[in-house]
Design a protein around this nucleic acid. Structure first.
Lengths: 143, 143
DNA sequence: TAATATAGTTCAAAAGGTGAACTATTCATA
DNA sequence: TATGAATAGTTCACCTTTTGAACTATATTA
């Protein structure tokens, strides 16, 4: 079946890309923070009024794993917690100035490398590719 | 800068897709094996005469981490080791029949779901997308 | 108001990772 | 060809991350 072959090619190459990016991340970030911690920190930055439950859902891990993750970021002074005054069960997460500085500095290094890779593509190809990727992400999130 | 925005969109959506796929994998695989273990097992299947060092390089982890990973798969009877007769330092890894059955059964379930997502795309768009993805994977691996 | 649901935390145990030290083997060269 | 360097893989101690169950605190609803 042709579809099966497409899925297989897709899986194989997206895995390869993802692993390479991870290796780059490790290289650029490391010593201060782990790759997992950086992903979580970045997610908090990009999602205003984000909660532990949001992160657990997005990353597909249990809430207790998120608590541990959050604690590590908190201990490093990269995020802060703020309790909702109306519903005192929920705790919102925010990136601190120190966290923001750290992200910016790291992203600059990463973007330089990824940008170098993307420069092998025609502008039109990049646009089409990212468009398809975003469409796929959207479809997969709507469930 | 425009490039920075492209990289940001790329990063954000590829992460989202990857997390979703992970959640699906966890759902379909779990209880018998972890997602990490499945990735390693799959890699061994797809790369004939694969060694621990190959895996360490591909996944960007230390060789000691691979030894531990391999042990877990070996203990489950999913892979076997065979020493190279000409260079007795190297140990080749192979998926057993049990491992193969496990992979096939799991892939069938996963392909069904991913195929459903891909069906939202025109055949031409899928081809272009996968082509770009493979190109990116190739570029990133040549270093 | 009692029962139930939800948000987040704590805990013990397992998986996964690191880097250094080690064994066994092969390669290189003097 | 003997020996010193390089390579493949393992072991070890220690840290991080995840899991799932039990728990606390707060909100919802019947």
């Amino acid at each position: 079946m042709e579809l099966k072959e497409l899925v297989e090619r897709y899986q194989s190459s997206i895995n390869q890309v993802y692993r390479r990016v991870n290796i780059i991340l490790k290289d650029k970030i490391h010593s201060d923070i782990t790759t997992d911690q950086f992903s979580t920190l970045h997610y908090i930055l990009k999602h205003k009024d984000c909660t532990s439950t949001d992160i657990a859902n997005e990353f597909g891990v249990g809430k207790s794993a998120v608590t541990a993750q959050i604690n590590r970021l908190y201990d490093k002074g990269l995020i802060e917690r703020k309790r909702d005054e109306r519903d005192r069960r929920v705790v919102y997460l925010y990136v601190t100035q120190k966290g923001l500085d750290f992200i910016n500095q790291t992203e600059t290094a990463i973007f330089e490398i990824l940008g170098k890779y993307l420069s092998n593509f025609e502008k039109e190809e990049i646009n089409a590719f990212i468009h398809s990727l975003e469409k796929l992400a959207k479809i997969m999130s709507e469930e």
